[in-house]
Design a protein around this nucleic acid. Sequence first.
DNA 1: GTCTCTGCAAAGTTTTTGCAGTCCC
DNA 2: GGGACTGCAAAAACTTTGCAGAGAC
Lengths: 153, 153
Amino acid sequence: MPVGDEDSQRRIDAMIAALRAAGLRLTHQRLEVTREIAASDEHPGVERVFRAVRVRVPTISLDTVYRTLATLADLGLVSRVTATPGPVRYDANRAPHHHFVCTRCGLIRDVENHVLDELPVPVSAEALGRVESVEVQLLGVCGDCQRKEAEHV
Amino acid sequence: MPVGDEDSQRRIDAMIAALRAAGLRLTHQRLEVTREIAASDEHPGVERVFRAVRVRVPTISLDTVYRTLATLADLGLVSRVTATPGPVRYDANRAPHHHFVCTRCGLIRDVENHVLDELPVPVSAEALGRVESVEVQLLGVCGDCQRKEAEHV
DNA sequence: GTCTCTGCAAAGTTTTTGCAGTCCC
DNA sequence: GGGACTGCAAAAACTTTGCAGAGAC
């Protein structure tokens, strides 16, 4: 299911304006990658965007798609769905709990909270499938990284 | 901060019992990897567990740690922190929203829900750092995968 | 003794980087 | 024309796999 045309167009316009504002060039490749990600609500990976864009721009390379999506993410125009970058990490805590994740250094800490443990499952989610667990991620900047940022100002 | 001794010991006992129940062998390497992950609340990656265990078992190899953690995860004794396996995926939806994630096929769908948008940030999380956003992941099995499971029964 | 598990090595995946040419501004 | 961007290729980072020997039961 693609995003509605008007939403998609609004996204594209905002992204192009932001690219321009950042002083970045509006190359053919960048525009097509931007169009593709803006028009999708399937949370595609790099490979998938690459295949879709290649239909219209047969000479585009996979690493350009990598670089373009990274650029859009740096500008805050798209987000990475997986909160923690890098290798897989494991957790031996089997009790229901949630995570604080530092987006700077990747620190992850358990957060226990009964309100979060008992969240109602939205009806719109039940329509998609059987929900087996609910995990809350609190994304932010940990104490250490805040201190480092303060030092560098 | 390590897990309390009594919690850690309880986890280790439960994991060893489960390994035995599954008919798996309690090798020196498996026991040490199990001890290491049970004693940590830092959500370590494979590399980190490897380095820690190598102090006690100098001959252990990295791929044994990979295999052992995968085994523990398959038995449900530990969990992978990053919900979506495989490559990074991107999302152009900048409005606050949440995700339904199919743990079988990796399908991700946006879920909009105002209750989830306005969750209170637990005090215990504020002690860890500045929380910038709250994301809820609803993990489960999507309609397609449920249908496939039903066919194979 | 049997059969699983381990260590080694090699390969597979995903992502990043260096460089020379291209093309936006 | 200048400088950022692209495509290519190679490398780096992460993970999986095949095989022969070692060790748990």
